[in-house]
C-alpha cells in the first residue's frame, strides 16, 4: 500500500513538473509563434503585391481584412461581412446581405481590427452583435489593399481540390480584377509532375489576365513557347534570363489573352489550378460587387 502511495505521489509530482515545463514553454512560445506566422503571411502578401526586400512597401500601404460569415437566421441563410470601420473608430461593422444580394442590415461590432485576427474572439463578438437573430459560421477572409486610402489590390486566400489533395493558394487581384499574382501556399501534388505548379513559369502565366479573359480561361496542352517561358521565369526581375524588363513586359502582354499552357504530363493539376483560380475570382467579383453596392447605398464608411 505504501508502495502504491509512493508511486502515485511521485507520478503526480512528475506530471506536475512536466505540466509546468510544457505550460511554461507554451506561454513563452505562443506569442512568438503567432507573431512569426503573421510576419510570414504578410511577407507572402507583400511579395504577391510586388514588394520585396529590395522594393519595400510604402508606409501608406494598408491591408484591410474582410471576414465573411454565413448566418443562419429565421428567414433563411444570409451572408455577413465583417468590415473595419463603419460604427466607430475602434469598432467594426457587420454588413448583412441576403442570398439574392439585397441588403438586410448592419450591426456594429465592438472589436478592434487587431483583436479580430483571433478567430475565437471574433466569433464571440459577432455572436454578441447578432444577439438571438441567428448563428454565424465563419466562411472565409479576403483582404483589400489600399495605398493612401485608394484601393490598390485585393488578396484572396483560397483552397481548391488539386490532383490528389487540396491546394492552398493566395491570389492577388488588381483593382480592375485583373490578376496581379498567384502564390501556391500548400500542395501535395506529385513531385516533378503536378508539383511543378509552384514553378514561376506556371503560376506567373496567370499574371495580367483580365477579368474577361478569366471568365473563359481554358487550358491548352501545346508546349509552352520558349520565349514566354523565359519571360515568366524572369518574373519582372529585369536582366535575368537575358531579357530586359521591357521585353518581359512585352512578351507577357502578348500572351495575356491566351489560355494557360498545361504542365507537361500534369494536365489534371494544371486544370485544377486554373479552375480553382477562376472560381475564386468569379465568386469574389460577384460578392464584392454586392458588398460595394450595399456600402454605397447605405453610406457605410469604410477605410477602403
Amino acid at each position: 500500500m505504501k508502495d502504491i502511495l509512493t508511486i502515485i505521489f511521485r507520478l503526480t509530482v512528475a506530471c506536475l513538473l512536466a505540466g509546468a515545463v510544457m505550460g511554461g514553454a507554451f506561454v513563452l512560445t505562443n506569442q512568438a509563434k503567432r507573431h512569426n506566422a503573421e510576419l510570414n503571411e504578410r511577407k507572402v502578401m507583400l511579395s504577391l503585391l510586388g514588394y520585396s526586400s529590395v522594393k519595400s512597401a510604402p508606409a501608406s500601404l494598408k491591408l484591410h481584412p474582410i471576414y465573411r460569415y454565413l448566418i443562419t437566421a429565421k428567414g433563411g441563410e444570409e451572408i455577413g461581412y465583417l468590415l473595419p470601420g463603419g460604427a466607430g473608430e475602434a469598432g467594426m461593422t457587420l454588413v448583412i446581405i441576403d442570398l439574392d444580394g439585397k441588403f438586410v442590415g448592419q450591426r456594429p461590432v465592438a472589436l478592434s481590427p487587431e483583436v479580430a485576427k483571433e478567430e475565437t474572439k471574433r466569433a464571440a463578438a459577432i455572436q454578441t452583435a447578432l444577439g438571438g437573430d441567428g448563428k454565424a459560421r465563419y466562411a472565409d477572409q479576403t483582404i483589400v489593399v489600399t495605398e493612401g486610402g485608394q484601393r490598390l489590390a485585393y488578396l484572396l486566400p483560397g483552397r481548391f481540390p488539386g490532383f490528389k489533395t487540396f491546394i492552398t493558394a493566395m491570389l492577388a487581384l488588381n483593382q480592375d480584377f485583373s490578376i496581379r499574382g498567384l502564390e501556391i501556399m500548400e500542395s501535395e501534388e506529385d513531385p516533378g509532375l503536378g508539383g511543378e505548379i509552384v514553378q514561376k513559369y506556371f503560376k506567373n502565366q496567370f499574371k495580367a489576365k483580365t477579368l474577361e479573359t478569366m471568365r473563359k480561361l481554358g487550358v491548352v496542352k501545346t508546349p509552352l513557347p520558349d520565349e514566354y517561358r523565359r519571360a515568366l521565369e524572369a518574373d519582372g526581375g529585369a536582366g535575368s534570363g537575358g531579357l530586359s524588363a521591357e521585353q518581359v513586359a512585352k512578351i507577357e502582354a502578348e500572351y495575356s489573352g491566351k489560355d494557360i499552357y498545361a504542365l507537361t504530363g500534369a494536365t489534371i493539376s494544371s486544370r485544377s489550378v486554373t479552375e480553382g483560380v477562376k472560381a475564386m475570382v468569379q465568386k469574389f467579383v460577384y460578392r464584392l460587387g454586392l458588398l460595394d453596392q450595399a456600402l454605397k447605398e447605405q453610406k457605410i464608411a469604410v477605410p477602403f
Binding site: N30, K33, N40
Partner: peptide, 18 residues
C-alpha cells in the same frame, strides 16, 4: 519525460522556425 521535451521542442520550432 520524452513527451514533455518533445512538446517543448515542438513549440519552440513552431514559433521560431515556422
Amino acid at each position: 519525460t520524452i513527451a514533455t521535451w518533445v512538446t517543448v521542442i515542438d513549440m519552440v520550432l513552431a514559433a521560431y522556425m515556422p
